[in-house]
């Protein structure tokens, strides 16, 4: 009887210990999860009470110092983000070579400067989601993908001489041999050739295409990305809270359509 009682007691004790351990683990999990889901605090993310933006204002139409003030797509985007976060904003115009140093040293809170996501910098930086893709696009009035090696006429592709499109297309030639290359002195000439039907397509970067189309609203070509150059906002790797806030604000701008409005106003 005594032995049975001791066994029961032992089992009860073990059960209590297991329940206690489970309860502690559960409580810890709740604390951790609640911390994770708690909204980041703007005051602790930006303790100076303002957002300092590093920007290389030599990059129109993303940012340009016109002598009186800095303006451009990146400036409007950063201002809209600051409004979302209800914080004042200040811009520091910094040349590209010193831009990343300024972020890492804490001189600025983040970089909004037509920055391409660079995997090599990810030990030091944390990028937000992309806000614009400046990759190369193929533009045309017919589906150039249909023009393969068996077609009687090679696809005629126009591009700017010695540009990134030139390098991309010459690589296709090595691979495919199905292109008649039409190099032009300017990317606008390449787009003219596509628009006028002198080429089956043109390859330019997305910004160039959008700027070209702004002046020629009567032309509505088909286009498709063939490479990607995502532009994103960079923050220091140790500023996770600030990053979450900025990335969330960018989400809000996308959902509300404000990001598209900003891009359309410049490109």
């Amino acid at each position: 009887m005594a032995a049975a009682a001791r066994r029961r007691l032992k089992l009860a004790s073990a059960a209590r210990s297991a329940i206690l351990a489970f309860a502690i683990a559960g409580a810890l999990a709740i604390v951790v999860l609640s911390r994770r889901s708690a909204p980041p605090d703007v005051k602790s993310a930006f303790p100076a009470g303002e957002i300092v933006i590093g920007v290389d204002a030599s990059f129109p139409p993303f940012a340009l110092d016109n002598g009186e003030r800095i303006e451009g797509l990146d400036i409007d985007l950063a201002s809209a983000l600051a409004r979302e976060l209800e914080l004042p904003i200040r811009f520091e115009n910094i040349g590209f070579y010193a831009l990343h140093d300024a972020l890492i040293s804490g001189r600025v809170d983040m970089l909004v400067s037509a920055l391409r996501v660079d995997p090599a910098r990810m030990d030091d930086l944390r990028y937000t989601q992309s806000y614009f893709d400046n990759g190369l696009v193929v533009v045309g009035t017919r589906d150039t993908a249909q023009a393969d090696a068996e077609a009687p006429a090679k696809a005629r592709i126009a591009f700017e001489y010695a540009s990134s499109a030139d390098a991309e297309i010459r690589a296709w030639e090595v691979d495919g041999q199905w292109i008649t290359m039409l190099p032009y002195e300017l990317p606008e000439f390449a787009l003219d050739a596509a628009r006028l039907g002198l080429a089956d397509g043109a390859v330019v970067d997305a910004t160039t295409l959008r700027l070209y189309l702004r002046a020629r609203s009567e032309w509505t070509p088909r286009y498709e990305y063939i490479t990607h150059e995502p532009y994103a906002i960079a923050l220091r790797i140790d500023r996770a809270e600030a990053w979450r806030l900025v990335d969330g604000a960018l989400d809000a701008l996308k959902e509300s359509g404000e990001l598209v409005t900003i891009i359309d106003s410049w490109l």
């Binding site: 030599s58 990059f59 540009s163």
Partner: peptide, 16 residues
């Protein structure tokens, strides 16, 4: 320099 966006650059043909 022949970057398409940098304000200190020229077109690639001109750079050459």
């Amino acid at each position: 320099n022949d970057h398409p966006r940098w304000s200190g650059a020229v077109r690639p043909s001109r750079r050459t």
